[in-house]
Amino acid sequence: MTSLPEKTEKKLGLVIDLDTCVGCHACVISCKGWNTENYGAPLSDQRPYGTDPMGTFLNRVHSYEVQPDSGQAQTVHFPKSCLHCEDAPCVTVCPTGASYKRSEDGIVLVNETDCIGCGLCAWACPYGARELDQAEGVMKKCTLCVDRIYNENLPEVDREPACVRTCPAGARHFGDFADPESNVSKLTAERGGMDLMPELGTKPVNKYLPPRPKDAWDGEEDILAPFLTPVAEEPSGFLGWLDKQLSRLPGDGKTDS
């Protein structure tokens, strides 16, 4: 049914640390790798080796430059996938009931055998979290790796979303936001986790941790700096003699002047 559950027992989701993310796109690749051969239809590519290559991805990494009022601009890498919103507008617009939000853990999923590929859920999502697969004609989205997190055939360490498992920087965290003692709840509280486009009222479950303030160098020099050996401007000793002899030879007039 496309009506949203009034309350979900768990609120599973991700915390994405914009301070730590290095923009390596490893989460994008591991997501595509896992999800193209597991739950649902494969994630197709169009013209992968041609001009204008295109494909279905459930996770994308943008890079932004943020310019404060004064001082240096800052680069922020910004992974973006489904936020598993509490008030998910993509679910209620679905005409067939293919899109649904699970009452047990809050994961938003698409039942691909019911999806007619009308695209209205992608229109309703403010974040661009849903992509219509061009080969299969059905809507694809992040499943929070529902086929990993409960999968008892996997070692326990692997029972988390592929993007979290692979992140080499530790910028992605998975957990239950309904539990105030969970790792994700604590991180969100400590670091001021934020919602994307809160003004649209979607109540995203996933939270983003803002970049920490950067160090500044304004005139601060170490007190020992004056005692450091200055870098030689003119060569001395053997190098100085060599420099003098070489300068006497003709041929480097062009570069010298």
């Binding site: 295109m54 991805f57 890079s63 943020v66 404060p68």
Partner: peptide, 20 residues
Amino acid sequence: GLGSIGTVRSAAPPHTAPNY
């Protein structure tokens, strides 16, 4: 969510060719 730091400009999109 980066407005508290400054103005945001797209420096690099996630993909080189247009997607869906």
